[in-house]
Amino acid sequence: MALLEVRDLRAGYGSVPVLHGVTLDVEEGSNAVLVGLNGAGKTTTLLALAGLLASESGEIWFDGQRLDGLDARRRVRRGVVLVPEGRRVFPALTVAQNLRLGAWPRRRQRRLVGTALARVHGLFPVLAERRHQLAGTLSGGEQQMLAIGRGLMAGPRLLLVDEASLGLSPKLVAEVFAAVRQINADGVTVLMVEQNAGVLAGADRAFVLQKGRVVFAGAGGDAMQKTLWTAYFGDPLAEPGRR
């Protein structure tokens, strides 16, 4: 049984349906990617998985237990942690305070928090250097690292990463992706949402989302094939290898 099993998930905003039955499986320890055009519903999917948006119907199973119906707080406790689109760090708190709040669900377990902090600092040394700096004064790349680091502080089993590459230089994108690969190698299951096709090559599994439905599920390499890509995206500029 996969760590995450999503069955026919429907969700939307008010009376506007966005997800029309999303079904996908993410195996424990794997590194999965969800791609799709702008507006396809990738962010909506992650919000519904994280419990920030109520799902209308369908099932979300995590480690054999139903997740839908639980609030965001309980899902974080179970290890489903979101690194949200747009970073959403707390701008007027320091880097250290942001990381501290990331550990909220297990804030009384000082030793675990200390270990997690050392791990985050190991992964992103710049966050250690700038720990007393206000998060709002960090560069975009540093804020993304902080957002990922804050997610790690909760001790995730499944990390949901929404468009970590958005607005970053190619060098920083490579750095952030390398960090996510490292996190995955350390045993955290990862589901990344990306428009940047560069991640597909390294992914164990890829899902293509189109208008609120998964229209392709397969190995990351297969999703990269030009035929598929143009079929689903129809935009030669977005073709992998040409960015």
């Binding site: 965001a72 974080v76 949200p84 959403r88």
Partner: peptide
């Protein structure tokens, strides 16, 4: 303090 800066993000961290 955090909820005054980003209420959604406070839910994100649980």
């Amino acid at each position: 303090l955090a909820v005054s800066q980003d209420p959604v993000a406070t839910r994100v961290v649980g």
